[in-house]
Every structure is written in structure tokens, then in C-alpha cells.
Amino acid sequence: MTEQNRIDCRFARLRGEGRKALVTYIVAGDGGLENTVALMHQLVASGADIIELGVPFSDPMAEGPVIQKGHERALANGASLRKCLGLVRDFRQVDAETPVILMGYANPIQRMGERAFADAALEAGVDGALTVDLPAEEAGPLSALLAERNLRNIFLLTPTTSEERIREITGLASGFVYYVSLKGVTGAGHLDLDSVRDNLEHIRTFTDLPLCVGFGIKDGTSARSVSAHGDGAIVGSVLVSAVDEAADLAAAKASLGEIVSEMRQALDR
């Protein structure tokens, strides 16, 4: 399809403006299902370019303790893949522009059925999916179903990904490439900027897709440092912590607003 997807539009605009993307992650239903859409709007108001909405799963294998607990709280609040799709639909009532990606694990999608999921995602106004435990060799059918609907399938590349796989994955990827900055789980603290730079330069020789960097990004300084070599920064654990620590919706909005604004300013400086 030639029709542009919201993710592509956003990156095209940012490139035109010479700016970097700020990708923000929260867990759907964390802090209350009724509050998630308000938090999404707050992220946008404070300068987020793309929202990654975490779909909670009982066994989030790739997450560090902060996001694991976010998944547990969200499940206790009654969140599910179906409810996440409903939240995106509600968000779209007000915001027709900001790209939304569902980030989660394979099993809830398997349970719904890949085709049913792709249909529902399109209908709800989702723009792409990132399924952590669906690597390239298992992702073919879902990728095709998403592509038929002009939805993007986001893949991870990591410091351990071989050159052969970088070629294979960038061939299958769309939207942008999510570069995992370190060996570890989300929220880990051992970011190595030299390695990030070298790896991004290497990946760049294989693809023109935007390259965004996630894992280990905690503030404006680290966001700015990693995005210097790529097209954007992805932040998750600090936002999930902020939602957890907030006493109510107003406090959560204020806290997210502060963190995201600071990152936005650092990226635009």
C-alpha cells in the first residue's frame, strides 16, 4: 500500500524538522483503566511523538522489576488485550494524529487469533505492534496480516544480533527499528554509549528505517545521548515508576508531564 501510516508520517515530519522522536511507554490499565487515556493525552501534550501502549501479560519475560509490577497492577485492574484496543479507540476520539503502538507478548494475540487481532487493531486506530517474544522466524504470518492493513510491525535489534539477522530483520521490519541498547531487561542501568553508537552506525548500513533506542534511558541527558546517533529515544521504566508512585490521576499527569517535557526539551536543544 502506498497510503501513509501515522508512524511514517511522524518520522517524515521529524526528519523534515531535524528533530528526534520521543517514544513513550506506559502500561495500559496501570493506574486504573479509566485513567489510561488521560495519561496518553498527557504524554502527547508534554511532547511525546509516539505512544507505546504496554499490553499487560502474566509472564512478561523481557521486563525488569519496574515494568513487571506495572503489568501485575494493570492485570489486577482488569486490563486485557481487548480492553487495550478499547482504550486506543477512546484515545482516537480526540487525537487522530499521534501514532500508537501496542507492545506486548505473543500469547494474548495468539488467544485472540492473529487475524482477529490485526482487524481489531486497524479498527481501533492502532498503527503498529511490537511483540517482544515473536522474533523474525516466528513473525511472518502476523507481519503479513498487519502489512495488508497498512499497520507496522516493529522489531527489536540488540547488541547480540548477528549481521545476517540484521539483514533479515530489517527486511521484515516496518515503521521503525527498536534498538535495545543493552543486554538485559527493561529498566536496567548499564548503558554503554560507545557501543550504542557503533551498533547504530552498523545497522544504518542495512536500512533507511528510523532507528530508535530503548532500554536504560532515564532522563533528558541519556535520551539526548542515545538519539544523537539515531532517530529517537524510547522511555518506559521511569514513566511506569511515576505512574506507580502517583497518589491519583492529577499527580500521575503532573509527574509524567514533568519527565516527558524535560526529555522533549533535551532532545530539541
Binding site: V132, F155, T161
Partner: peptide, 9 residues
């Protein structure tokens, strides 16, 4: 093999 990309290697 349904694991995160980091483990594939």
C-alpha cells in the same frame, strides 16, 4: 523459538 531478540544469538 519465541524469545526476545537478545537471546537468539
Amino acid at each position: 523459538r519465541f524469545v526476545s531478540e537478545t537471546l537468539i544469538g
